[in-house]
């Protein structure tokens, strides 16, 4: 799985390099954004359920090439700081301009990112072992700025991230594992150039 991901990233990088060497028309693009992951969590039994709000910090940098006037593809690195898991998704994504007129200063983009969130930066309490999982992140973004210059970016997307946690055994426990699916609305602000 991780090898597949690394392979995809390598292929993407190679593709970019290849494309750039053969066509100077391909322009490097970068989207760097910070924001929050907003959601809720419901825990407990059906008769005693507790619902809590959740906000987590997220940061992401997308580096790629503008393949066509409307489509950019690239690789991405994120940091998602959930309350009990610090995950680092690596993946690939695309930015597609929904407006046909690419010369407008305000443009609406469709974004689609996917990858695997690693727990490399996570420091777990004794007895806990956090492993990452797959991530998908589709959404929309507003790019505000002249097409040929740097611009501000506002993005609103849905982020789904899975993780697995092994928990310490107590009492009569034999096995205690948790499968987490973080379902969040992701709102980010950043710059693009």
């Amino acid at each position: 799985m991780k090898r597949l991901l690394i392979g995809c990233l390598m292929a993407l990088v190679c593709q970019n390099t290849h494309a750039q060497s053969f066509s100077q028309q391909l322009r490097y693009v970068n989207y760097t954004e910070l924001g929050g992951l907003f959601g809720r969590v419901a825990s407990g039994t059906s008769t005693a359920q507790l619902v809590e709000n959740r906000v987590s910090f997220t940061a992401q940098t997308f580096n790629g090439v503008q393949l066509t006037n409307r489509l950019a593809v690239g690789g991405l690195v994120s940091v998602d700081w959930y309350k009990a898991a610090l995950l680092t998704p690596l993946g690939a994504g695309l930015r597609f301009d929904l407006a046909r007129d690419s010369q407008r200063n305000v443009r609406l983009l469709a974004i689609a990112d996917a990858g695997y969130g690693f727990a490399w930066l996570h420091k777990a309490s004794s007895g806990y072992d956090v492993k990452g999982g797959w991530m998908i992140n589709p959404g929309i973004a507003l790019r505000v700025g002249k097409p040929s210059a740097s611009a501000f970016v506002l993005s609103l997307s849905y982020k789904r991230q899975t993780a697995d946690v092994q928990k310490p055994l107590t009492g009569n426990d034999i096995q205690r594992d948790e499968h987490r699916i973080y379902n969040r609305i992701c709102f980010r602000i950043g710059v693009a150039f």
Binding site: R54, Y158, I174, R176, H179, I181, N183, I185
Partner: peptide, 21 residues
């Protein structure tokens, strides 16, 4: 695009499986 944002139900889903004696 918008409907899928509603459909995703942004609620974390965490399930602990515990086996014990």
């Amino acid at each position: 695009l918008l409907p899928f944002l509603y459909l995703t139900a942004c609620t974390d889903n965490c399930k602990e499986t515990r086996k014990y004696r």
